[in-house]
Design a protein around this nucleic acid. Structure first.
Length: 596
RNA sequence: GGUUCCGUAGCUCAGCUGGAUAGAGCAACAGAUUUCUAAUCUGUAGGUCUAGGGUUCGAAUCCCUACGGAAUCACCA
C-alpha cells in the first residue's frame, strides 16, 4: 500500500525532472499541510530554487500546474510564499480508505526475517515492584510489540537478579525476626513479605551503626563492623558454597517472591518468552575474559584481578574479574550477550534498563567490539528516565516508593468509582463491571506512562491522581467504545458498513482528515520501531481519537435525517477508526473496551 | 572534575532528519446535552522555546559558550 506522503514526493520528483531536470530526491521536502491552510500536503520549494533558477513563488506555481495537469491524484494547489499546498482528489482518498479497510494486517510490516531480543523487567528478588519497574515493564512489553509489528521475530526475556547480598539481607532478617511467617500464615503477597524483611534488616542495621558510633567507633568503620552485616556476608558465602540450609531458605523465599511477581506481571499484562536467573548465569563470561587476556585486550594486575583499559576511549579502567577469580556484573553481561547471540542467532539485542546504567552499557558495547564481535553495534540500550515524585527520587529504603500493586489497585478502584458516579455501569453484571474498571484503570495508568518519551525523566504526583479526561488512555478507550456502540446500533438497523466503497463520493474535510490519519498509522508504527518509542504510537492514537470525536460531534451518522448511503459510509469510516485505535492501543499493551 | 542526558504555557507533556503565526491535555474562565454514550465538543486567556553567540533565505530544532537540573565515573547488581 502506498503512503500518500511518499506518493506526493514521487510525483513532485517527476514534476521537477520534467520541468528542470533531475534533482537529488533529498531536496524534495514534502510534509502534511498545516490545518490553517487549504490542501493535504505541502512542498517546501526553497531547496529546489538552485535547480529551478526561479523565485520560490514561480517555482511553486510551475510545479503546481504540472502536477494538476499530469498527476492523476492531484486536483488543486495554492501557493503561499514558497510553500506549494497540494490537494488530492476525493477519489484517491476513497481508494485509500478502501485499501486500508481491506487489509486486515494494515499497519503491520511483512516478516523481516530479523530476530530481536528485548530484555526487560529484570527485578531483584528482595522487594516488590514499584512505579519505576512499572515504567520498565510497560516500555519493554510495548517496544517488543512494536518490533513485532515491524515484522521482526521478537523474543521477550527477563533476567531475574535472584542472588547476592541483598537477598541474604532479607533472608537473615526473616530468620531473626520472622518467627516463621509465611505468605499463607500472614496473608501477605510473597514479594511484599520478603520486602518487609529487607526493610527490617535495614532498620536493625542502622540501629547497630548508631550504637557503635555512640561508643566511639567512626561511622565508616561501624558500617563495616555491624554484626548483622557481617552475618549477611557470611550467609552469602554459605550460599555460594551451596550450604544446604541456606540454599533451601533461599529457594523458599525466592519462591514466595516469584508467586508475587507472577501476580503483578499478570495485572500489568506483561509476559516473557524466557526467564533467565542470575544464579544460573553469573558464572558465564569467565572464558571470554580468558580469551580477552590471550588476545591482549584485557590485562591482569598483580593481585590477579583482570581489567580493561578504556582511557584511550575517554573512559576509565574497568574491572572484569576479581582477584579471587569471581565474576562481576560486567563479566556475566558479556557472557549472556555472547550466549544469546549464539543461541538465538540474534540480529539485535535491546536492553530496557534505566539511564543510571548508561555507563555500563557503553562499556559493554565497547568491550564486545574490542573483542571482535561483529554484532556489538547491534546492542541497543533503551535507556529510560527515572520516575520522580514531587519530593524527588523514590527511595525504597526510605519508604517513599509508590508500590506497583497498590498503584494498580488504586487506579482500578478510581475507574470503578468514576464509572459508577457517571452511571456508566448501570445494568451490567458484576463481572462486566470488574472487567471495565480494570481495563479503564489500567489503560489510564499505562497511557500516562507510555505517552512520554522514554528517555525523559517523568514526574508522577500521587496527590493529583492520573487523569481520565483529555490526553489519556480512557479518552481513547471511550472513543473506541462509542464507535462500537454505534456499530451495534447500525447492525440493529440492518446497515452493513462493509462494501461502502464509492470512489465518486464527495468527502467532507473532516472525513479526508480522518482517512489521512488512518494512512499515517503504518508510518507511525515504523517510526516507533526505529526509535524504540511507544510514545509515537500514543500520540498517534490520541490524534486519531480527537479527530474522530470532533467529526462525530459535527456530523450525524445514524440519525434519521442521514441518507442511507451516508449512514453506510460514515459507519464504515468510524469502524475503521475503531479498528486502528484498537490496534494502536494493542501496541501499547492497552485493551479497549466494547462499552464503558 | 570527566562523560552522558535533560531544560518548551502555572502544571504534565508533544514538536527536534532546519520551513508558514510554536501545539495538546490539565488547571482557570465562558459556552454546548429532552445524548447516534458529555469519560465528549466549542471558545477565551496563558510563551523572551533557560541565556548569549554562530551557521542559514529561514533555528525550539544544527554548532559553540554559559547557567540550571539529573545520572554515572565501585573488587554492588
Amino acid at each position: 500500500m502506498i503512503n500518500p506522503e511518499t506518493l506526493v514526493c514521487t510525483r513532485v520528483q517527476q514534476a521537477v525532472a520534467a520541468l528542470y531536470g533531475a534533482v537529488d530526491p533529498a531536496l524534495v521536502q514534502v510534509s502534511k499541510t498545516r490545518k490553517e491552510f487549504e490542501g493535504d500536503y505541502t512542498l517546501v520549494t526553497f531547496a529546489l530554487l538552485k535547480t529551478s533558477r526561479k523565485s520560490p513563488e514561480a517555482t511553486a506555481q510551475e510545479i503546481g500546474q504540472w502536477l494538476t495537469a499530469n498527476a492523476p491524484e492531484v486536483c488543486a494547489f495554492n501557493v503561499i510564499k514558497g510553500f506549494l499546498n497540494l490537494s488530492l482528489t476525493d477519489g484517491f482518498w476513497n481508494g485509500m480508505l478502501s485499501e486500508i479497510s481491506g487489509d486486515d494486517r494494515y499497519g503491520f510490516a511483512p516478516p523481516s526475517d530479523r530476530t530481536v531480543m528485548v530484555e526487560y523487567s529484570s527485578p531483584n528478588t528482595n522487594k516488590p515492584l514499584h512505579l519505576g519497574h512499572i515504567r520498565n515493564n510497560l516500555l519493554g512489553y510495548s517496544v517488543a510489540e512494536i518490533l513485532k509489528a515491524n515484522g521482526h521475530n521478537t523474543l521477550k526475556v527477563n533476567l531475574v537478579n535472584d542472588r547476592g547480598i541483598h537477598i541474604c539481607k532479607s533472608m537473615l532478617a526473616w530468620q531473626k525476626f520472622g518467627d516463621g511467617e509465611t505468605p499463607e500464615s500472614s496473608g501477605k503477597k510473597g514479594d511484599h513479605l520478603v520486602g518487609d524483611y529487607y526493610v527490617a534488616f535495614d532498620k536493625a542495621y542502622k540501629a547497630q551503626i548508631k550504637e557503635l558510633t555512640a561508643n566511639g567507633m567512626p561511622e565508616e568503620e561501624a558500617k563495616k563492623q555491624a554484626p548483622i552485616m557481617l552475618e549477611a556476608q557470611q550467609m552469602l558465602r554459605r550460599w555460594e558454597a551451596k550450604d544446604p540450609e541456606v540454599y533451601a531458605l533461599w529457594e523458599r523465599m525466592n519462591g514466595w517472591v516469584y508467586d508475587g511477581f507472577e501476580q503483578t506481571y499478570r495485572s500489568l499484562g506483561v509476559s516473557f518468552d524466557h526467564t533467565y536467573y542470575e544464579s544460573n548465569t553469573y558464572l558465564l563470561g569467565k572464558e571470554i575474559v580468558q580469551k580477552g587476556l590471550e588476545s591482549g585486550v584485557f590485562f591482569r594486575k598483580e593481585d590477579g584481578s583482570v581489567w580493561i583499559d578504556l582511557t584511550a576511549d575517554g573512559l576509565d579502567q574497568k574491572l572484569l574479574l576479581r582477584g579471587d577469580g569471581t565474576s562481576v556484573y560486567m563479566t556475566q553481561d558479556l557472557g549472556t550477550a555472547v550466549e544469546r547471540f549464539d543461541q538465538y542467532r540474534l540480529d539485535d539485542l535491546v536492553y530496557v534498563v534505566g539511564n543510571e546504567q548508561n555507563y555500563h552499557f557503553q562499556v559493554l558495547k565497547l568491550i564486545l567490539d574490542k573483542l571482535g564481535y561483529a554484532w556489538a553495534g547491534h546492542i541497543f540500550h533503551l535507556s529510560y528516565g527515572m520516575v520522580e515524585l514531587p519530593e524527588g527520587k523514590m527511595k525504597s529504603r526510605e519508604g517513599t516508593v509508590v508500590d506497583a500493586d497498590d498503584l494498580m489497585a488504586e487506579m482500578v478502584a478510581t475507574a470503578h468509582e468514576m464509572a459508577q458516579e457517571m452511571g456508566k455501569l448501570d445494568g451490567l453484571n458484576s463481572e462486566e463491571v470488574d472487567q471495565i474498571s480494570r481495563t479503564v484503570g489500567m489503560g489510564a495508568l499505562k497511557y500516562f506512562i507510555l505517552k512520554v518519551d522514554p528517555r525523559k525523566t517523568m514526574l508522577f504526583n500521587p496527590k493529583e491522581s492520573i487523569d481520565f479526561n483529555g490526553n489519556t488512555g480512557p479518552f481513547i478507550q471511550y472513543t473506541h467504545a462509542r464507535i462500537k456502540s454505534l456499530a451495534r446500533r447500525a447492525a440493529g438497523q440492518g446497515i452493513d458498513p462493509t462494501g461502502w466503497i464509492d470512489l465518486q463520493r464527495t468527502l467532507e474535510p473532516k472525513e479526508t482528515e480522518l482517512i489521512k490519519l488512518l494512512a499515517e498509522f503504518a508510518p507511525a508504527v515504523r517510526q516507533a520501531g526505529n526509535e524504540y518509542s511507544p510514545a509515537v504510537i500514543a500520540s498517534y492514537a490520541f490524534e486519531l481519537a480527537k479527530e474522530f470525536n470532533q467529526y462525530y460531534h459535527d456530523y450525524p451518522i445514524l440519525k434519521e435525517e442521514v441518507a442511507a448511503a451516508d449512514k453506510r459510509f460514515r459507519t464504515g469510516l468510524a469502524v475503521e477508526v475503531a479498528r486502528i485505535l484498537k490496534r494502536a492501543m494493542g501496541l501499547l499493551g492497552i485493551e479497549v473496551p466494547e462499552r464503558m
